[in-house]
Structure formats: C-alpha cells, structure tokens
C-alpha cells in the first residue's frame, strides 16, 4: 500500500528499494518506528531493522573494528530490545544502507546561533564556514561512526538525519535565540549548504528537515510535535508524521 506521500506524488518514479537498511540512532528513532507501525513510511528497503539506544545507553555504545557495540549490560539489553532481531552488534557491512537518525547531531545546537550571526549582518568566510561545519559534524560520535562506515565500504549508502530544531511553544527550551526570529529560508539554506559540503567530503549525505516543518526562524512547527503520551512538553522529539516525512526525504535522496 502506498504511503500518503506516494499517493500525493504518483508521477514521481520511486527509486528501487535498498536490499537492506538499518536505521540507527537514539531516542529519535522511536518516531520512525511509530511511523512504520502506522503504515506511514514509504517503501525504501526490502529489509528494515532498527538499531540503537537512548539516554545513557546511547553514550555507552562503543565503536571498534567497524562495528558498533553496546558498552555495558544495560546498553546490550536495550539494543537487543530495539533491534528485535537478535543483532547485538552493528557492523558497517551488515546492511546495504544506513540511515543515521538523530543520534545526537543536534541541529538545534548548530543552526540557531549561526542564524543569529547572519541575521545581525555577520559574515562567515568559506574557510570559517568549513571550520564551524567540520567542528559540529566531527564532534559527534555517531557522525564519526558514519564516516568510518563510509570509508570502510565505498559505495555504501549512508545518510544522516540530524536531530531537528526544537518545537516552538512546546516545553521549556534551554536557550532561545531572539536574534534569529526573523531568519529566512535562504539563510537556513546557506547554513545547510556549509554542512552538506563538508559531509559530502566524508561520503555522507545529510538529510535536512524540510522547510515546511520550520517556523519563526529556527523552530519546528508545533504541527510536527511529538504526540506520544508523556511527551506533551517535549520540544525535542517529533511525531510519526515527521519521521515519515524524513524517510520520504531519504527515499528521494536514493533517487539521486
């Protein structure tokens, strides 16, 4: 059965599904699972597995010999529960494609302060753009793992969905950036471009949250807020529809 997006765009030829795909990440992958369970995901693979952990267990994941391993018993128990297929370790060659989802690469930390700089008339030279983008990307363990996967297996499909911007009006965000209230799509696109150029050099395709999910400069529109019980005040996580939208973006990226 086609997803809502597939129904909405029947003329667009869908790319061939990947033989296998692993969606790796932290607590954000829960929304993807919800989307899967509700039949919202477009078909992107013949074999889908989830692998990851949340909270301290995610930090406990270790990376050795091109393989991600749980670093302690709690993490082991968690990855097994999330994976559900008995995969205790995740090797870089286990799947035809990997979609890193969230995984602590937080766009809410990167984009808003830089939007403030641009909104204030600031300018970053290309050299400085490269440095800030590289520091953000390479400072995240999951991104370094994605890079290692890409290096170890040339031609592997690796995409990374950074954790989205915080949801406007939901909960209490730790920090606000009033100077970025008026940020434009063009400015956001410029910042995404800095990241994309760096990621491309690492063989990683970054998949950004679409403009239609963004509001008021640097927030996710509350329409995409998590609707799971207990997450009413959660500005970080998003709903299943958002996850489905991001997997559509992934699918479109497979089409080139």
């Amino acid at each position: 059965m086609p997803s809502p997006a597939e129904r909405a765009a029947p003329l667009q030829r869908a790319p061939a599904p990947l033989p296998s795909l692993c969606i790796f990440g932290d607590s954000h992958i829960a929304s993807v699972k919800h989307a899967l369970d509700r039949g919202l995901l477009p078909r992107v693979t013949d074999h889908l597995e989830f692998w990851g952990a949340y909270g301290p267990a995610f930090r406990a994941l270790e990376f050795r010999d091109n393989t991600i391993l749980p670093g302690d018993a709690a993490a082991r128990e968690m990855v097994c529960r999330i994976n559900g297929a008995g995969r205790e370790a995740l090797g870089g060659g286990d799947f035809a494609g990997y979609l890193f989802y969230g995984a602590r690469l937080r766009m809410a930390d990167f984009m808003p302060p830089l939007l403030e700089t641009l909104c204030a008339g600031g300018h970053l030279s290309a050299a400085v753009q490269r440095k800030v983008a590289r520091r953000f990307l390479r400072g995240t363990k999951a991104y370094r793992i994605a890079c290692a996967f890409a290096r170890a297996t040339p031609g592997l499909t690796i995409a990374f969905v950074p954790a989205p911007l915080l949801t406007r009006g939901v909960g209490s965000p730790g920090r606000v950036y009033p100077g970025a209230d008026g940020a434009t799509a063009e400015q956001r696109d410029a910042i995404r471009g800095w990241l994309d150029r760096e990621a491309a050099q690492d063989g990683i395709r970054l998949l950004h949250q679409p403009e239609e999910t963004i509001t008021a400069g640097y927030w996710t529109d509350p329409a995409w807020a998590s609707d799971e019980a207990g997450q009413e005040d959660d500005p970080v996580h998003k709903n299943a529809a958002f996850a489905a939208r991001m997997v559509e973006v992934f699918r479109d990226s497979l089409a080139g």
Binding site: P113, T117, G122, K131, V132, R135, F136
Partner: peptide, 16 residues
C-alpha cells in the same frame, strides 16, 4: 561587536 561565530574553535577564532 563582531564576535566569533558559534562552533568556531578558540584557536581558529584567534587565527581568523
């Protein structure tokens, strides 16, 4: 009045 952008490492901020 022209602070280093976020995410620029201190040593790079100085170099630039």
């Amino acid at each position: 009045a022209e602070p280093a952008p976020a995410w620029l490492a201190p040593e790079d901020a100085r170099a630039y």
